[in-house]
Design a protein around this nucleic acid. Structure first.
Lengths: 254, 254
DNA sequence: CGATCCGTTGACGACTATCAAGAAGTGTGG
DNA sequence: CCACACTTCTTGATAGTCGTCAACGGATCG
């Protein structure tokens, strides 16, 4: 009985490509767990009424696709529960997982008219939906919101640029160490313990995220375990025994 | 006598680490060649007076460092002439060139209080300098400017995410093909011909940008030449003979 | 003219991808 | 409840690609 984190709920039997789910009226920002993390935080509490009016709630089953690469980009999203992957494919099937998205993350920082990635739910997810147009109008009326979006877009840019170093110059073990630290940090922000990492995604997802094969990912896990830096509570639930050594491996900035 | 492009002027005898140059009063936005490209374009012509008041002009010699990783981030820049590289180093000397910056590009989309990269001039450069504070105030007074910054930050995010695919999943030849197309496209926006690419940076810079070694970069160049896709006018001046085939190699999006 | 830097090419070896098999966990149906 | 299919993850053997080491040619500069 491996009790996975309550933040990232357990993966349901994955239907290959389920429907993205229905849009429902929004329940209200007040009780929202991610209120303080998300883009919405830029708006003073008094103005959340407007946000709520524009927002819809969307639930997506594990395994289902939220939005497909190439489709017209009509909506933007804030994730309130669960985890998704940002995927891009090459014609010959090579795959990149450009990132994992969790509660508080925003989908919609793009200048493109069409989605440039496919977004697939790894666990059951709940999201706040906004029509792109509505969000743009909200931004026009509330410069603080736009400023907040700019700040968060810059933060994401910083993070993405760090990934460049990972992919360009780090060894497999170093990449994995950095990945584990990154996931731990983000989950900690959501209230999890600092040294426990929950990995709802498959080894394949991790491989395609780190530019490796699943075998190399697996061997790198084994190496970190043998060296006493991590411990497996389950294949997808890991304890970081020596975060400092992991940080040293990953090149500190992580 | 290799007459390099007039857009990216020839590399001067590189002083190892010259001084970043002096800040001068600004010459005015009216005649600025990059006016239509840069962040500033978001501001209506009537308001450029304010921009000019806040801006300074800065010249940086080839080989000199504009800003150092870890230093306090006091200024932001728009490049009006020349080319710089965005560099990050690992403790053991491994290097990443996170990007090449040219006329119209903006340095300053970051949420960090300190520079996260070192910026080094590849050719002699001219830049518009703004104190970070001034720019933030300008944004507060002119929401259009902030909206423009957000748009451009998103565009840069899109571009950076594309680099992830390059580094994670493309072969050396594919990476180089994509790189050449990217440089050609950006130089075309500045008025150069579509099939001529000027590469002021060294093979080492290219290697550290593509996550390869200089030998592999060199061999990949040779391969593209042997296959008839490119032609060398000089080691750093290349003609794209078959852009379509290059695009196919790079995975089209480029 | 020698020194230095840059780029190319060749020989070799290491590391990671590939191929293959097996172990472990999960859900389904009898 | 158990057998079976299926997926995921791990481990081993092998091969290929790219990194490393080395040498050379060309350009630039003092």
């Amino acid at each position: 009985m491996t009790s996975r984190s309550s933040l990232l709920q357990a993966e349901a039997p994955s239907r290959p490509t389920g429907s993205p789910g229905r849009r429902q009226p929004h329940a209200g920002c007040e009780g929202c767990l991610t209120r303080s993390l998300a883009v919405c935080a830029a708006l003073p509490p008094a103005d959340t009424v407007e946000l709520e009016a524009a927002a819809g709630e969307l639930r997506v089953q594990a395994g289902a696709t939220l939005a497909r690469e190439g489709a017209v980009r009509r909506d933007v999203y804030t994730i309130t529960r669960g985890m998704l992957r940002r995927v891009r494919l090459l014609p010959d099937g090579r795959r990149l997982v450009a990132g994992f998205l969790m509660a508080g993350d925003f989908i919609g920082f793009s200048g493109a008219s069409h989605y440039r990635h496919t977004f697939e739910a790894i666990t059951d997810c709940t999201l706040c939906v906004f029509a792109l147009q509505d969000m743009q109008q909200l931004c026009r009326r509330h410069p603080e919101l736009e400023a907040g979006m700019l700040r968060q877009a810059c933060a994401e840019l910083d993070a993405t640029r760090s990934s460049l170093m990972t992919l360009a110059r780090l060894t497999p073990v170093e990449r994995l160490a950095g990945f584990l630290l990154d996931m731990a940090m983000r989950q900690q922000r959501l209230g999890a313990s600092a040294d426990r990492v929950d990995l709802p995604m498959t080894r394949n997802d991790i491989a395609d995220h780190l530019g490796l094969t699943i075998e190399t990912v697996s061997r790198s896990f084994t190496r970190l375990k043998q060296d006493g830096m991590i411990e497996f509570d389950a294949p997808r639930l890991i304890t970081l025994l020596q975060p400092a050594r992991l940080r040293a491996l990953a090149g500190s900035p992580a």
